[in-house]
Amino acid sequence: MTRSENARLNMIESKMNCAQSVLTAFCEDLGLDKATALKLSRGFGGGMGRTGNTCGAVTGAYMVIGLSEQKSAREGVEAVYTRIQEFNRRFVAVHRTTGCTELLGCDLGTPEGLAKARSEGLFTSLCPNFVASAVKILEELK
């Protein structure tokens, strides 16, 4: 099973949010224990704290990119920004946006939007695909 397939399944089976699913797929490679990775990324699901903004799979990928950069402070920041911009380009090419609300077709920041996402099973039908896509792109960017 590939890392992206494993991350997709972990999201469904372990009830992780999108950011947690992406970050934990790489935590061992990054020298980050899983418990810390889960805590660090738990506020980024639902478009960052269930606000419907940037997709958790995307913010999880940003964390992986930031943690994986080995260059010095200023040089490292520039390298991270460059890799994030490339990640975004590739993610948008597949999914048209990095926004949670647009990806799901409902705003998780409202009670109605959250109810719709839950009742239509969007967290299990759509979100795992965004996770798998983010992990695959990260692997391609290495």
Rank of each mutant, 00 (worst) to 15 (best):
M1T: 15
M1G: 12
T2S: 12
E5D: 15
N6P: 03
N6G: 00
A7Q: 01
R8F: 06
L9A: 09
L9H: 01
N10L: 05
M11H: 05
I12M: 05
E13G: 03
M16Y: 15
N17T: 11
N17V: 06
A19K: 14
A19R: 14
V22M: 12
L23D: 08
D29R: 12
D29L: 08
K34M: 10
K34N: 11
T36M: 08
A37N: 07
K39E: 15
S41I: 08
S41T: 11
R42Y: 12
G43K: 13
F44W: 01
T54R: 10
G56Q: 09
G56N: 07
A57M: 04
V58C: 00
T59P: 04
G60W: 03
G60A: 07
A61V: 06
M63Y: 09
V64R: 03
V64K: 13
V64P: 05
I65C: 04
I65S: 05
I65F: 03
S68E: 15
E69R: 08
E69I: 12
Q70F: 12
Q70A: 10
K71I: 06
A73K: 13
E75P: 02
V77F: 12
V77T: 13
E78V: 08
V80K: 04
Y81E: 10
I84Y: 04
E86T: 15
E86R: 13
R89K: 14
R90N: 13
V94D: 08
V94I: 14
T97Y: 02
T98H: 00
C100R: 03
T101L: 02
L103T: 02
L104Q: 07
D107I: 14
G109E: 06
G113Q: 11
L114F: 14
L114E: 15
A115K: 15
K116G: 08
P128G: 01
N129V: 02
N129S: 13
V131D: 05
A132S: 10
A134I: 00
A134C: 02
K136R: 15
L141S: 04
L141D: 11
L141W: 06
